[in-house]
Amino acid sequence: ETTPQSRLKSFLDSARTLQADFTQVRLDESGRPRQESGGSFYLQRPGKFRWDYTKPYRQQIVSSGGKVWFYDVDLEQVTAKRLGQAVGSTPALLLSGEMALEDNFTIEDQGTEEGMYWIKLVPKSEEGGFRYVLIGLEGDKLAGMELSDNFGQLTRIYFANLRTGITLDPKLFQFSPPAGVDVFEDK
């Protein structure tokens, strides 16, 4: 009898490396999509992930070496925060195996919707800044995520063209700031 924990575990075990296209949609209070963005997502467990936003603008969020690098191309600014302080990095950290899920989250079965089996993770500690994260699986493949912010506003992420167990170029997870941008790195 499969439990949400076992479904989640089998997904995480099967996805040592993962690459997918993603679409991120922010919903307003009445559930209407307000902003949409997207790009490519890369994951290498443990500890490494990368969100490459390509539309509507170019941003990169790269985690490696215990820091999360945020780069906005138009703003020409890079900030690197230690894992603990990096707002917004927790959802991907969940997947990257940096956090022991059972210790930090209560894991609940959220049932099936949109053809995905959803697992709800509620942070045990308050200051995570988010109320819960939903992980949507198709079989044991990552298909979606849903995050609620501290206002209850939802952000949904849909993954497509998922490939796991492939070798990923290590340079994907080594962030070197381009010339001419302002760089601020947490020591």
């Binding site: 969100w51 945020f70 906005d72 917004g88 990095s89 800044g129 912010d149 952000t155 601020f184």
Partner: peptide
């Protein structure tokens, strides 16, 4: 400190409403 965020700003007569959100719309402040 240094950080980046998305910004929504509605100006309506004498009132201004701003939403500032971090990556993945986390850490929102209105």
């Amino acid at each position: 400190d240094a950080w980046q965020a998305s910004l929504s700003w509605d100006h309506d007569g004498r009132q201004d409403r701003l939403w500032i959100s971090g990556p993945l719309n986390q850490g929102t402040v209105s």
